[in-house]
Amino acid sequence: MALRLFQRKPHTRGPVSGGVRTAQAFVPAPVEKLASDPLHALCQQERYNVIIQRRREWAEHPDGERLCREAAVRLESRMALVPAGRVTLAQTVVDAPGAPEVDVEVEPFLLDIHAVTNAQYQRFVDAGAYEDFDLWPRAIWPHLIHMRDQTGKPGPRYWRDGRHDQKLAMHPVVGISWYEAAAYARWIGQRLPTEAEWQMAATWRIKSETDLLRRFPWGDAMDRTRCNIWASGIGHTVPVDAYPEGAAPNGVLQLVGNVWEWVDGDLNLTTTEGKPIVAEMDIKATRGGAFDTYFESQATGLFRTGHIALARLHNIGFRCALSIGDAPWLREAV
């Protein structure tokens, strides 16, 4: 099984919707009928790592072996290996030369090539995940009732009647809190990347004799034609497969721009005087900048910021990760 490491799969740039999106009519995504067979249903929901984790359950299933193998292939095609390395996390809001930093070693791991799309998140909503308390930490249960769309149905903030806009099926899901992102990742048998892992994927400071890193996934200089930030002049999200020229060496797309990405961890920054930055509730780290990020210095692989964990904003999405230890199919391949 070939691992996507240094090979770049040729991508076709997805259609970028022009004009003002709000002026276009909302087209609700059609309801997908789920197979009655649980294994086939998991395949439909693209919960590939769940299928593999529970493969012993499918031993008697007539399609069990084939679908497990297929799940591994599918998962391998949508994730990329990020090699071991070391990242340096700034500790102060102004990351000037000489400012405190912390070095973190990163083990190799797998990262989704694309951010999670509306179409993918639709399956999570359709599965009734907002009512499945096992997916959510107990502390968040009282807040689940507020995680509603424009019409009061469970789902991302900008959806209607529990459906996403079909025109935005391939755009990253936005309007979800950190808890919703983490619950989705758990539901598909994965997790959110840590802040250090995300930075490793975006800066590629791999373990080697030479201490090299890049500020952006594609190199060391900002190039607004390789990402969707304010200066790109688009003004809204684009499909997750757009900007193939902005890919990291392993093919991971849009680590910079389009949407901020929730990562696993609290934002622990201080002022230059060492006073902690706080908010009225926990600030979870977000990385990478979004379509409306104004300053190019704030859309890099190194820039650290965050949002309050319950924020459900128009410019925050996420992607999922997987530890090598949680990917038996990958261990076998290696």
Binding site: L267, E273, G306
Partner: peptide, 17 residues
């Protein structure tokens, strides 16, 4: 975000624009 300044006043910190 918010932080205390040198005089212990709470000051807002724009984390990003």
């Amino acid at each position: 975000g918010f932080a205390h300044d040198e005089d212990d006043n709470v000051v807002p910190v724009p984390l990003h624009a």
